[in-house]
């Protein structure tokens, strides 16, 4: 296995982007899942479709939309430009791309967790004097922990593999915005670098295995705790 300094940087960046994207998406994912599961409001269908859209759209399309939104002339891009924060073609753009693409997976898992909570537990909590945000923090959050965990690992793994949206909004700059999939893409396009590509692929597999194993272990631990 051969890894050059650029590869190490790509691995580090991949992990950083995936972690940041998961952390960024978590509060939104939780809030969206809560809205969809527990709240009745007009336009809920529209929200559900919007949340799930990135799941069915080609990532490249999402990347293109993000580019329009975050680019120099985009709504958000203008604001960011004015406050002197560059986003496009930085690792932050990769984070936003991964977060957008992975969000539906996160919301789905958290929803499943929340839907399995008995409505009467929530009613009991409210009638015992807990305000809605109190119930959210002390009943809904801990009881949907399995869903949150499953969603986070899924989202983390998906972010590690993000390619299409990332290459459009963050580019493929070695050492700056080049994540593992982008580096593999570079290697794969030159016939002399098959071994290099293979090395990074192995690293990818390794990380995925670790993520999945960590998820299994954590959910086992949660099971044990709830069985006590």
């Amino acid at each position: 296995m051969i890894l050059v300094p650029e590869d190490i940087a790509a691995i580090g960046l991949s992990l950083k982007v995936a972690l940041a994207a998961t952390a960024l998406a978590l509060p939104f994912g939780f809030a969206l899942a809560w809205l969809i599961v527990f709240k009745k409001f007009r336009g809920k269908m529209v929200l559900e479709v919007l949340v799930n859209l990135p799941l069915t759209l080609p990532p490249v399309v999402i990347g293109f939309f993000l580019l329009l939104l975050l680019g120099k002339n985009g709504w958000i891009g203008k604001l960011l430009d004015a406050s002197g924060i560059p986003i496009i073609f930085t690792w932050k753009a990769a984070v936003i791309a991964s977060a957008t693409v992975g969000l539906p997976l996160l919301v789905r898992s958290i929803r499943l967790g929340m839907e399995s909570i008995d409505q009467q537990l929530i009613e009991a909590s409210r009638s015992l004097g807990a305000a809605w945000y109190d119930t959210l923090a002390t009943i809904i959050l801990p009881l949907s922990m399995r869903g949150i965990m499953a969603g986070s690992s899924l989202m983390f793994a998906r972010s590690l593999g993000e390619f299409g949206a990332t290459i459009i909004v963050a580019g493929n700059i070695p050492g700056l915005t080049q994540t593992i999939p982008l580096a593999i893409y570079d290697y794969a396009s030159s016939p002399s670098s098959v071994t290099m590509a293979l090395s990074l692929c192995l690293v990818s597999v390794l990380i995925s295995v670790v993520v999945l194993a960590a998820h299994e272990l954590l959910s086992k631990k949660l099971d044990r705790r709830s069985a006590l």
Binding site: D118, Q120, L121, E123, A124, S125, S127, L128, G129, I139, P142, L143, R225, S226
Partner: peptide
């Protein structure tokens, strides 16, 4: 301040 005792105990499992 009206507390409910349900048909099932509905204890918080966590």
């Amino acid at each position: 301040r009206i507390a409910i005792v349900f048909q099932q105990a509905m204890l918080f499992p966590h």
